[in-house]
Design a protein around this nucleic acid. Structure first.
Length: 553
RNA sequence: GUGCCCGUAGCUCAGUUGGAUAGAGCAGCAGCCUUCUAAGCUGCGGGUCGGGGGUUCGAAUCCCUCCGGGCACGCCA
């Protein structure tokens, strides 16, 4: 768990001032002290210092404890068992932090990104069909990650790459044309590898409704794959559809980047020349190969085919060059599906081949999603026409549940998406659990205003005596900025989700044990402020996850 | 065959830059509503952290090996 950097700082300073030892903030671990031990928090100070000051971890911890006795932010420092220093936090610290939470607009933010420009590419689904469930995971994950990174001081561009250049698009255009002509009596002749799905027929019908038979005469005998009106029309409609789906999902992109642009602007040739100049190509069997093996790939990759055409891989090179050079991104993050892990090496080869360090590229492979219903996998097969469309999923379980479930697990874990559970409106469903907490908090605040006729200010809260549940609530709220920093650094929105769940559970416990408004109608300023702070914290978290803030449930 | 991901409670998973008694949720059992939303709370039971070996004061975490599950290995895009 990422624990409060502020507290860590106290120990870093202590180590430096008292012992002349420079500690890395990340090596300092502040945790909640286990039940039954002294104090609220514990820090691994003894282990960190024992070597430097040539004492056993426990003795080192004792030294640290002694030096912290007069610190104004912590109280009762004490060396514990193997080498920890456990301590309590002073009321002054709590007051100061809570006031900051309200007054400092950047309270939940950090600046580990230092304004660096990140290109975050995700979804990038082929525009030949509706978005499917896997894209939903990518959309949830990418959007939440973008928010986390922005809050951590990065300048993030969310980008969707549209593969509108290759054969798939050609075949889609042709399939669409055949379906359209079919509506006017010409039997459809769907090409090999073409698209058989029902949605193609529906799209053709839509086009018929819009344009009538006006396209029949003109395009009936046009078999040009690239210069094909239906190809263009199909692309437009599909992107429009994807955008609509994503909008329902609360996800939007800053940029839709079309592969065809790279060809139109001769950037593919340019990229090709760039790699060629660096001597990274070889010719074999009439094709041009990029020697990606020089960068750890298991085989070289064709860039230009025998017939002189560039491969998709050539576009990738141009695209990467565009990101780094034309647009000056400091870092490129690529979120890919589970079937793409073989691509990492060759993508790294591109980056290095263009003369950049491979660390500038982060490829994240999202593992597969299994839709589960009644304990069984729902089979998804494009070929059988049974597409697990994201639209259907959103319709079925709602946006909030879908977005929450998709980032509940870390990206490298397979995700079992339990449809029944996501639909359930009960305590079993974690989404409702957290949303319920927000509604509850809002409801209390309404009552507070009704009974007292006013809103309480942070400085009215007195934390000199806090109950266990109050302190827990405080602790988890004040720790949220560090959770956000940690989650961003690990590219793991799931870290935030877990912390949010814990925070909410602390609140529910608090609620069941203590009253903000006593039975005789008196409002505790401290508790009213706590709930206000909670509301703000939850809003921040909900925005990151992309779920609705419902004031009533 | 090669490469990547995974293996932790009955189920789904946290925890993996080595640190305190391995944690949640669900499922099971027992309680809590004349009280700010019971879509909530409290308690109980449940574990050879896939097996084995190694490194270490200390291993779920690092190394080796084996076993099991998933996915990928086109001059397709």
């Amino acid at each position: 768990m990422a624990f409060n950097d502020y507290l860590k700082g106290i120990f870093r300073d202590c180590a430096k001032d008292a012992f002349g030892v420079e500690l890395n903030l990340d090596s300092i671990k502040v945790d909640k002290a286990p039940a039954g031990t002294h104090g609220t928090y514990g820090v691994n100070a003894g282990f960190l210092l024992s070597k430097a000051i040539k004492k056993s971890p426990f003795d080192a911890a004792a030294e640290v404890a002694k030096h912290l006795e007069n610190n104004k932010n912590i109280t009762e420092p004490q060396a514990v068992k193997p080498g920890y220093v456990n301590f309590n936090v002073s009321p002054a610290y709590y007051s100061q932090q809570v006031e900051k939470l309200f007054s400092d607009p950047a309270f939940f933010f950090n600046n580990s990104g230092e304004g660096k420009k990140i290109n975050l590419e995700f979804v990038s689904a082929n525009p030949v069909g509706p978005l499917v469930v896997v894209s939903g995971r990518a959309a949830s994950y990418g959007d939440s990650l973008a928010k986390l990174l922005s809050m951590s001081g990065y300048k993030v561009t969310k980008e969707d790459y549209v593969n509108d250049f290759g054969r798939q698009m050609d075949l889609f255009g042709l399939s669409l044309k055949e379906r359209y002509m079919e509506l006017f009596g010409t039997p459809a002749n769907i090409p090999e590898g073409g698209y058989m799905g029902q949605y193609v027929i529906e799209l053709a019908e839509k086009i018929k409704a819009e344009k009538g038979d006006s396209l029949v005469a003109q395009y009936k005998d046009n078999f040009d794959l690239k210069d094909n009106y239906f190809r263009k029309l199909g692309l437009e409609k599909m992107i429009q559809w994807q955008k609509q789906t994503l909008e329902k999902f609360g996800v939007s992109f800053d940029n839709w980047f079309y592969e065809s642009e790279l060809h139109k602007n001769k950037e593919v040739e340019e990229a090709f020349a760039r790699i060629e100049k660096r001597g990274l190509f070889k010719e074999e069997e009439g094709a041009v190969w990029f020697k990606t093996t020089e960068f750890g790939d298991d085989k070289d990759r064709v860039v230009k085919k025998q017939d002189g055409q560039f491969t998709y891989f050539a576009s990738d090179i141009a695209y990467m060059l565009n990101k780094f050079e034309k647009r000056g991104f400091d870092r490129v993050i690529n979120i890919l599906g589970p079937d793409h892990h073989g691509y990492i090496k060759r993508m790294e080869a591109i980056v290095q081949g263009l003369g950049y360090e491979k660390e500038k590229l982060n490829v994240i492979i999202l593992q597969q999603v299994n839709l589960m219903e009644n304990g069984e996998k729902v089979k998804m097969s494009k070929r059988a026409g049974k597409i697990a469309a994201l639209d259907d999923l959103i319709e079925e379980v709602g946006k909030d549940a879908a977005r929450y479930f998709f980032i509940m697990r870390n990206f490298n874990s397979h995700l079992d998406f339990d449809i029944e559970l996501a639909k359930e409106q009960s305590d079993k469903n974690p989404v409702f659990y957290v949303q319920y907490a927000y509604a509850r908090a809002c409801s209390i605040l309404v009552k507070v205003k009704e009974t007292s006729g006013r809103v309480f200010k942070p400085e009215e809260a007195d934390f000199s005596a806090v109950e266990q549940e109050e302190e827990d609530l405080l602790l988890y709220m004040l720790n949220m900025p560090d959770v956000i920093k940690d989650a961003a650094g690990k590219y793991a929105p799931s870290v935030l989700v877990a912390a949010l769940f814990e925070l909410v559970s602390k609140f529910h416990s608090f609620y069941n044990k203590h009253r903000v408004i006593s039975e005789n109608g008196e409002v505790s300023p401290k508790r009213a402020v706590l709930i206000l702070a909670l509301k703000k914290t939850l809003e921040t978290c909900f925005d990151i996850i992309g779920i609705t803030k419902r004031e009533r449930m």
